[in-house]
Design a protein around this nucleic acid. Structure first.
Lengths: 137, 137
DNA sequence: CAGGATCCTGGAGGATACTG
DNA sequence: CAGTATCCTCCAGGATCCTG
């Protein structure tokens, strides 16, 4: 696996990169962005299709999310001047590259979710009391 | 209503992985987890060192975050029964593997943040009016 | 159809004070 | 030192209604 050391020095480090990673995490960390871009990864869709493809999303959040993603250059909005209005959303190359990066995390999740689940079960069985103790030096 | 009706409805993507990826994103998407694990990636640290290494974190959030990460098996807590209490936190193998996965995103951020920034500038220059339009089919 | 404008609430998260 | 307990604020995000 690739070691993390690539980024600057120790803790205080992450000179400015921490800002970049936070931007990305703020975007994909929210409730809907990843669902939207992964849905669009299949192909362009219109507003109502997105809403139907993403159960539980409100119009407000769909609109807000789409605007944010468009603003960041991750997708494009194309309005067709027809009589029943039609608007299509499509990933940009940048957006697709982000989907690829997120897939790495998805793979991690798929590979290790059982470990995480096991750890959680262990910690809830043993309650709060379970702590690793060590002898004094 | 609509009780998060099982994934796999209209959306043909990501069968059940969407649940796993959400777990991961809920964890690393929050404000502090990534900072904590990346700080610990350098080596084990005690509570006060973590607090000092992560400017702006409150004791509450440090404690909450550490507990969550420990619960998920990403780090271990070791209390040394000494007179001034000493507690050390260290990443597990699982935790380190997650850091590696997150680094992929960090690299994406470092590579593409300029594109994103440019897109944002463009969208704020042109205001809301900037939209791609297309002729009717 | 594709949103915009409002109102409202839960819960993430900060500040502070206290304790084993 | 390493937390716990409490209070309080703020805003992400859902629900609802309106419009070009």
């Amino acid at each position: 696996m690739a070691t993390a050391r690539a980024i600057g020095g120790p803790c205080q480090a992450w000179p400015a990169e921490s800002a970049f990673i936070r931007e990305v995490l703020d975007r994909i960390g929210d409730k809907w962005s990843v669902l939207v871009i992964s849905t669009l990864d299949v192909g362009p869709l219109r507003y109502s299709d997105l809403q139907a493809s993403i159960p539980g999303i409100s119009q407000r959040m769909l609109t807000v999310t789409l605007k944010a993603l468009e603003r960041d250059g991750l997708l494009t909005r194309t309005a067709y001047p027809e009589v029943p209005p039609r608007v299509e959303y499509a990933l940009t190359g940048l957006g697709r590259s982000l989907v690829g990066a997120v897939m790495t995390l998805a793979n991690w999740a798929a590979t290790h979710h059982e470990d995480v689940a096991a750890s959680r079960r262990d910690h809830e069985r043993t309650g709060v009391g379970r702590q690793k103790s060590a002898r004094a030096v």
